[in-house]
Structure formats: structure tokens, C-alpha cells
């Protein structure tokens, strides 16, 4: 018993000394995050870039959930790409919407050479996820301009938002704000699960009357392309499949390069 008590004591002291990154955790559902307004700051950084190029290049990835190793590899791989303006992560950066998951995600994207814009996903809403997202990244609906394109980040989560409608009025205003070509970034593709039916029709009506030239989504965990309301749409595979995309925009045309690593 005496020897065992010594071993137990040594294990306990070792864990106490080395074991705590964030030493105090009140609750798994706590919303305590240090980093604030990452999307707002990064959008300002992207918009302030006065570079004039013929082609706008950015990276697209989605649904890292808890694939932290793959996310780290994706960021390292993107860092080796030249001439990108930013990275878009199309949502589901957590599994359970817990603060620790957001912190781990942020730790990894913080090593990115390019500013990262994070879209909210349905998983990110779970627990107190929306509150954490708002603190860490800023509002879940936002827009920014880069090299003459208006990028609209739209929160289209329904079920996890107490079955409430996405803020279509906000989207309508954003789409009508300027004559710039627009790119829509949402997590859930409008034709899938929780948006099927009325919400899909609303999307269709808003998109068809707008300057949208491209829609980018995640959620489905497999790569696909299609035309929705006469606008090309790209659905990103999840990061766990070790895949991301380089999107090139020139005029109202786009080109997608699929990168597997």
C-alpha cells in the first residue's frame, strides 16, 4: 500500500504540473474564449489589400469537425500555395459546439499564412456554440469585398437554431447592396436536408434575381458541383478526406482546382 501510495502521488503531481493547458474549466458548455472577432479582423485585412490582379485566388475547405491532424496538414499545404488572398472554411469546425473544440480549431488556423474566414455550420450551433462563434469570429452573417468581388457569408442553419428561418431579409439586402459580382458562402447547400421546401424556394428566388456568380457550401462531406437557380455551386468535401480546393475568379468566370494530399 505504501509503495502504491507513492506511485499514486507521483502520477498525481506529474499530471498537476504538466497536465493543464487551460487549468480551470467551469463547464463543457462554457463560452469562455480569449480570441475575439477573427472573421471581422480577417475581413478587414482582406479588404484592405489594394493589390490589383486579373485573377482572384483563394482556398476553400470545409467540415474539419475534430479532424485536427488533417486540418493542420491542410493549413500547412495551403501555406505552400502562392498568390492566395484568403482561405474559406465552410463550417462545422466543431462536432459538439464546445469551447475547447473552437479553441483547438483556432490554434491550428492561427498558423495559416493567409487570413481565414470561417462560416458557421450546424454542428457549431450545438451546446452554446452560436455564442462562442459570435465571440470568437463575430456575427454569423457578414460580407466583405475583395478585389471587386462581394463575398457574402450567410448563416443558413435551421434545426440547430431552434427551427428558426435563416435571415433572408439580411441576405436580400446584401445581394442588392452593390453592383459587384457576389459569391455566396453558406454551410448547408440550399437544396439539402434542413433547407428543402420553402427555404430552398426562397433561396432560389433571391439567387436568381441577384449578381451571384458562385455559391460555395460544405455539409455533405463529399465533393460535387451543380447549377442552382442558374448559378454554379460547389460543395466541398470534408477535411478528413484530405482534400481542399483553389478557386480562381476572373471576371464572372471561375475555375476550380481540386487538391488532394
Amino acid at each position: 500500500m505504501n509503495r502504491f501510495s507513492h506511485i499514486a502521488g507521483i502520477i498525481w503531481i506529474t499530471l498537476t504540473v504538466f497536465g493543464c493547458n487551460d487549468i480551470i474549466e467551469y463547464s463543457p458548455y462554457d463560452t469562455n474564449v480569449v480570441s475575439r472577432n477573427i472573421n471581422i479582423n480577417n475581413a478587414a485585412l482582406i479588404s484592405s489589400n489594394a493589390e490589383r490582379l486579373d485573377t482572384l485566388k483563394f482556398a476553400l475547405c470545409s467540415d474539419p469537425h475534430t479532424s485536427y491532424d488533417e486540418l493542420k496538414n491542410t493549413i500547412q499545404n495551403i501555406n505552400r500555395q502562392e498568390g492566395l488572398q484568403f482561405i474559406v472554411c465552410c463550417g462545422d469546425v466543431t462536432d459538439c459546439g464546445l469551447s475547447q473544440e473552437f479553441i483547438w480549431y483556432h490554434e491550428i488556423i492561427n498558423n495559416s499564412r493567409y487570413p481565414v474566414i470561417t462560416v458557421i455550420g450546424n454542428h457549431d450551433y450545438r451546446s452554446n456554440g452560436l455564442k462562442i462563434f459570435n465571440r470568437m469570429f463575430g456575427p454569423s452573417n457578414m460580407s466583405f469585398i475583395c478585389m471587386g468581388y462581394n463575398f457574402i457569408v450567410f448563416d443558413d442553419v435551421v434545426w440547430e437554431n431552434n427551427n428558426k428561418s435563416p435571415k433572408f431579409d439580411w441576405l436580400k439586402t446584401e445581394l442588392g447592396k452593390s453592383n459587384l459580382p457576389c459569391i455566396l458562402l453558406t454551410h448547408i447547400p440550399p437544396w439539402t436536408d434542413q433547407l428543402e421546401g420553402v427555404y430552398c424556394l426562397v433561396f432560389e428566388s433571391l439567387i436568381s434575381k441577384s449578381n451571384l456568380i458562385l455559391c460555395l457550401h460544405g455539409h455533405q462531406h463529399s465533393f460535387s458541383t451543380r447549377v442552382f437557380a442558374c448559378v454554379p455551386a460547389i460543395v466541398s468535401d470534408d477535411i478528413g478526406d484530405r482534400e481542399y480546393y483553389i478557386i480562381k475568379l476572373y471576371g464572372i468566370q471561375h475555375k476550380i482546382v481540386r487538391i488532394r494530399f
Partner: peptide
């Protein structure tokens, strides 16, 4: 959940998941 993340990934280490009370 943190144990599961530590087991599933190399990024989350054994010492990253503990907190004190």
C-alpha cells in the same frame, strides 16, 4: 469527448485535456 479527441488525433496530446478543480 476530450479523451476521444486525444485518442483520435495526434494533434491533441494527453496533457492537453486535463483541467483542475
Amino acid at each position: 469527448y476530450h479523451i476521444w479527441c486525444a485518442l483520435k488525433t495526434k494533434y491533441i496530446g494527453f496533457f492537453d485535456i486535463w483541467n483542475l478543480n
